[in-house]
């Protein structure tokens, strides 16, 4: 698989470390009354879809940026690649 890095252009997937579902960007609120169960679900349950999947790839063998890659798990075709930082800010995780 070739990942079209937003800054570096096309890079081989073997330069990256796969870090799982991009939903992990959204860490639960630790002050919520349901926090214990929320964190258990966050840590251990996954949607694991067959089809479109947004996922985190860490460019460990490159510029060490984190990417959000949208990829089809039934074909491995990649439809979009963004910097995880941009995605997190857009979805309200920025500080």
């Amino acid at each position: 698989m070739i990942i079209e890095h937003p800054l570096l252009g096309p890079r081989d997937a073997s330069e990256f470390t796969y870090m799982g579902d991009a939903a992990l960007i959204h860490r639960p609120d630790w002050t919520a009354t349901t926090a214990v169960q929320d964190f258990a679900d966050y840590g251990y349950l996954r949607d694991n879809p067959a089809g479109r999947h947004r996922e985190l790839w860490f460019h460990e063998g490159g510029d060490r940026s984190w990417l959000v890659v949208t990829r089809d798990t039934t074909t491995h075709a990649i439809t979009s690649v963004e910097l995880a930082r941009d995605v997190a800010r857009r979805e309200g995780r920025s500080r």
Binding site: G20, L45, R46, D47, N48, P49, A50, T73
Partner: peptide
């Protein structure tokens, strides 16, 4: 498992 249990509305501690 993910595909089948999704039909029952269950999330699993599993990745395929």
């Amino acid at each position: 498992s993910g595909r089948v249990m999704e039909m029952a509305g269950l999330r699993l501690p599993i990745e395929s």
